[in-house]
Structures are given as C-alpha cells and as structure tokens.
Amino acid sequence: MAQGSAPDRHASLINAARGGAKGALDALVAELTPLVWHVARGNGLDRATTEDVVQTVWLSLLRHLDRLVEPRAVAGWLIVATRREAQRAWREANGKAALSDDSALDVPETRWLPESEALRNDRDRRLWQAFATLPRRCQELLRLTVLAGRAEYRVVAETLAMPRGSIGPTRGRCLATLRATLEEEGDLR
C-alpha cells in the first residue's frame, strides 16, 4: 500500500486500479468501507439496506473509476455518493428508520472470549444509546470526522455545509456532550 497522507494513498490506489493492479481496488475497499458504512448507517438505514447501499456505492465507483477527476478526493466522492444513495434507499423504504444501536461494522476477532465479548457489547450498546441522544448534526459530524480524520475536514465542511474552521470546535462540543451523557449514566470507563 502506498505511504503518505490518506488522500495521497487513496490517489495511488485509484491510479493503480486504473492501471489494472488487482489488489489496489481491494485495498481501497478495505480501507474506506467503514467510512461508507458509517455514512449509510448515519442516514438511518437498517443493516440490510446499509449493505445494499455500500455495495451500490462501490459498484458506482467502479463504473466511474476512469472519470474520477481528482483521485485524492475519493473519500469525499464516496461520502457524497453514499449520502445520496442512502437518502434514495430511505425514500424507497417510505418510512423513517431509527438509528440502530448495534456496532457499525462487525469485525471478528481471532480469539473469542465470551466475557470480553459481553463486556464489549455492553459498552458498545451504552455508547450507541448515548450517541443516539445527540442531535442529528452532532451524530453526522462525529461519524464523518472520526472516520475521515483531519485531512478530510474540507470534505466534511462541504458535506455538512458548515465552515471548515467550525468543525473542530463543534466536534469538541459534541464529544463533550457525549461524555457528559455517559458520565450522567455512570457509563464512562
């Protein structure tokens, strides 16, 4: 995998995939699928619909791979495409689905221990319950900034239609609210 910043690495993978490198697209999918997943789930989709949206978005990128003007901005392209596809899927479902409290991505561990799994599930459940109490704007901002990172603040600003300079302070306030909610519940560990 290419070294450097995430946008540079993504551009290298896009260019390699365009050149026919077999593993380049797989590496891109492995790295950015959690982002696509979180954006879709953040739009209130259930697990099955989210899986469909994620697949549709990746197929769309594959179809548009040669037309992607700025390969460094593939994460932003994926965020926008996922948001649009999620909104389309939501409209088709013709109802407002609740934000799920399960984890966004189930990654199997090499060692499974029931105690640690139960503790992690309980912690995750409490965290997602507290997360669900945040305003939708905070939920969306935290989902995007946690996965996209500081290098993608420009994309986050465009996606959420907010000034780039307000992302960090707003994120800090959202995290403080989340922390306070968890502390009130006695769930912060």
Results as ranks from 00 to 15, higher is better:
A2Y: 08
Q3Y: 08
G4N: 10
S5I: 04
A6S: 13
P7K: 03
R9C: 12
H10W: 12
H10Q: 08
I14C: 02
N15D: 13
N15A: 08
A17C: 04
R18H: 08
G19Y: 03
L25K: 06
L25Q: 05
L25G: 02
D26E: 13
D26T: 13
A27M: 13
L28H: 08
V29M: 07
V29T: 11
E31S: 15
L32D: 09
T33K: 14
V36S: 00
W37K: 06
H38V: 13
V39W: 00
V39N: 01
V39E: 12
A40Q: 03
R41Y: 03
L45H: 02
R47H: 14
R47I: 12
R47M: 10
T50K: 02
E51M: 09
V53Q: 04
T56F: 04
V57D: 00
W58P: 02
S60R: 15
R63K: 13
L65K: 02
R67A: 12
R67N: 09
E70L: 06
V74I: 11
G76V: 04
V80I: 13
R84L: 04
R84V: 11
A86D: 01
Q87I: 10
R91I: 05
R91P: 00
A93H: 11
K96D: 11
A97H: 10
D101I: 10
D101R: 09
D101P: 07
V107A: 10
W112K: 10
P114R: 09
E115I: 15
E117P: 02
L119N: 10
R125M: 12
R125C: 10
L127D: 06
W128G: 02
Q129D: 08
A130F: 03
F131W: 15
L134K: 07
P135T: 12
R136P: 05
R137C: 07
L141F: 00
L141G: 00
L142R: 03
L142C: 05
L142I: 10
L144S: 04
L144T: 02
L144F: 05
V146D: 13
V146R: 14
V146Y: 13
L147E: 12
A148H: 01
R150Y: 09
Y153D: 11
V155M: 08
E158M: 07
E158Y: 05
R164G: 01
R164W: 01
S166P: 00
I167R: 00
G168R: 06
G168V: 09
C174F: 02
L178Q: 06
R179K: 13
T181F: 01
T181Q: 12
T181S: 12
E183C: 04
E183D: 11
E184Q: 15
E184H: 13
E184W: 02
E184P: 00
E185N: 08
L188D: 04
